[in-house]
Design a protein around this nucleic acid. Structure first.
Lengths: 203, 203
DNA sequence: CTTATATCGATATATAATTATCGTTTCTGA
DNA sequence: TCAGAAACGATAATTATATATCGATATAAG
């Protein structure tokens, strides 16, 4: 079993795959090319890629096919993961529009909301049906987009029904048991970075 | 002039302020408390806070008022920054709902879209009027939420009109001149982290 | 008024992340 | 076929980041 990938390396691997996908015509990529776009040294790029078993060829670089299959494998984009969308207000719906989810291996199998309906192909069911569906389909991932004041209560329900990973789009910090992982989608942090750049210019 | 804050430290400062805001009753916070929530050592928390000129008192900790004013100052939440919203589809509108923007010192003064309208108090103007408004009000920040295929072209217009920071909610990598900063809101990266956790459980 | 304890700040140490150096390989063009 | 350049990989050095240690200080309890 391979040892866990350091977070910084992991982030760069994601970026590298993105660069590759945005240059569909290039057949190979040198560490120098990639390094330049990411703002790090070519040495580091090679180390990152070597660490997941990819190697390049002198004078050529890294082969596109190798990179894509290697990176997608490591990042888990190849498997298909069922997920549910909890809370289908504006934010929830805009995630549905976000076709990238599919290409990353996340497929939404149902939505839940107070008011049931149907959006495109996706059935929006009443929240009361959530626990049974999670159990029946063994869903492990939930995207949480409910209003702030019901975020924790809904998370509790998700946990009780057996959800293992919650992708939290609310600003509320969720308290969950040890074995459940919350990924916080934090606009605050982004906002702070944006402000920092605004103010840097000012001086 | 204070030297720039390291990024890791900066991120922790954002987190610390969030913790404080979520405990409105506490009058003081020890480095140990904060460290526990952030999953780092208390020493590091003290170093972070010391580095922005905050000091605590033995046996007591750091005073709430000091922390809030110090952190908000450094993070830039206290000033008011005008910004525009470009592209008012579902994602754009869900950002309007996101009241946190205000509390972070970002106030949207206008929206732009192909089809003009009015959302709440916010005027949504046709895209043709964008350049003149940016210049007239000296807007420096734009939130970009247009469809992928017009992202770069719109960014070019923003740059030409004098925008200095673009908060990019599209998945498209933007190419801009040196002096313009793009902050990429990257769901890809988040998705990758989420997948990683899903798969970790699996093994 | 004294003692015990929680917490601080400063300095030193340890760990992690990044870059530099150098020798090697493979393609290109004379 | 051979010289030169572009890119690689491995190891060493550097820099950045985080933790440990320790003496000092302020509160609280007796």
């Amino acid at each position: 079993m391979r040892k866990p990938i350091p977070m910084r390396t992991f982030n760069r691997l994601v970026d590298i795959l993105k660069i590759i996908e945005q240059a569909p015509d290039k057949q190979s990529f040198s560490s120098g090319d990639l390094a330049l776009e990411l703002g790090v040294s070519d040495i580091l790029i090679r180390k990152d890629l070597n660490s997941i078993g990819l190697s390049g060829r002198p004078k050529i670089g890294f082969d596109r096919t190798d990179l894509v299959s290697g990176l997608e494998g490591v990042l888990g984009y190849t498997r298909q993961n069922d997920a549910i969308l909890v809370g289908c207000g504006r934010l929830g719906r805009s995630l549905l529009d976000f076709s990238l989810l599919d290409s990353l291996g996340i497929s939404l199998v149902a939505g839940f909301d107070l008011t049931p309906s149907k959006i495109g192909r996706l059935e929006i069911l009443p929240l009361t049906k959530m626990p049974s569906l999670i159990k029946r389909l063994r869903i492990r991932l939930a995207l949480l987009c409910v209003p702030e004041d019901s975020a924790q209560a809904t998370a509790d329900q998700l946990v009780a029904a057996g959800i293992q990973v919650i992708w939290n789009f609310t600003a509320t910090t969720l308290h969950v048991p040890e074995h459940v992982h919350v990924h916080q989608e934090d606009l605050r942090l982004s906002a702070a970075h944006v402000l920092q750049h605004l103010h840097r210019e000012e001086q």
